[in-house]
Simulated scan of single mutants.
Amino acid sequence: MRYVFVYGTLRPGEMYHHLIGRYVRDVKPAFIRGKLYQLPEGYPALVLAKDLPGGMDSVDVRGELLGVDEQDKVLAILDELEDYYGPNDPRNLYERKSVTVLTRSGIPKECYIYVFVPGKLQWLEQNAMPIPRGDWVTWRRNR
Rank of each mutant, 00 (worst) to 15 (best):
R2G: 07
Y3D: 09
Y3E: 04
F5N: 06
F5L: 07
F5M: 08
V6E: 09
V6M: 11
Y7N: 10
R11L: 11
P12D: 10
P12S: 12
E14F: 07
Y16T: 11
Y16K: 14
H17R: 06
H18P: 02
V24A: 09
F31M: 04
F31C: 12
I32D: 02
I32Y: 05
R33G: 09
G34E: 00
K35V: 09
K35S: 14
K35R: 15
Y37Q: 00
E41W: 13
E41K: 10
Y43N: 00
Y43P: 00
P44G: 01
L46I: 06
L46Q: 04
V47I: 15
K50D: 14
L52M: 06
L52R: 03
P53D: 03
G54N: 07
G54E: 13
G55N: 02
G55K: 02
M56R: 12
S58Q: 01
S58D: 14
S58P: 02
D60K: 15
R62P: 01
G63P: 00
G63W: 00
L65R: 09
L66P: 01
G67P: 12
G67A: 10
D69I: 03
Q71Y: 09
Q71D: 08
D72H: 12
D72T: 13
D72S: 14
K73F: 00
V74D: 03
V74M: 01
V74F: 05
L75T: 00
L75V: 00
A76I: 04
I77E: 06
I77H: 08
L78F: 01
D79N: 08
D79L: 04
D79K: 03
E80P: 01
L81R: 08
L81F: 12
E82A: 03
D83N: 14
D83C: 11
D83F: 09
D83E: 14
D83V: 13
Y84V: 09
G86N: 11
G86A: 12
P90H: 05
R91H: 13
L93M: 08
Y94H: 09
E95L: 04
E95K: 03
E95S: 01
R96H: 09
S98N: 12
V99G: 04
V99N: 06
V101I: 03
T103I: 03
G106C: 03
G106S: 01
P108L: 08
K109H: 15
K109V: 15
K109G: 07
Y112A: 11
I113F: 05
I113T: 11
F116D: 00
V117L: 11
V117P: 05
P118C: 07
G119C: 06
K120M: 13
L124R: 06
E125S: 11
N127V: 06
A128L: 07
A128K: 02
M129D: 08
P130Y: 04
P130I: 13
I131H: 08
R133K: 14
G134D: 04
G134V: 01
G134F: 01
W136I: 11
V137I: 12
T138W: 12
T138M: 13
W139G: 01
W139L: 00
R143H: 10
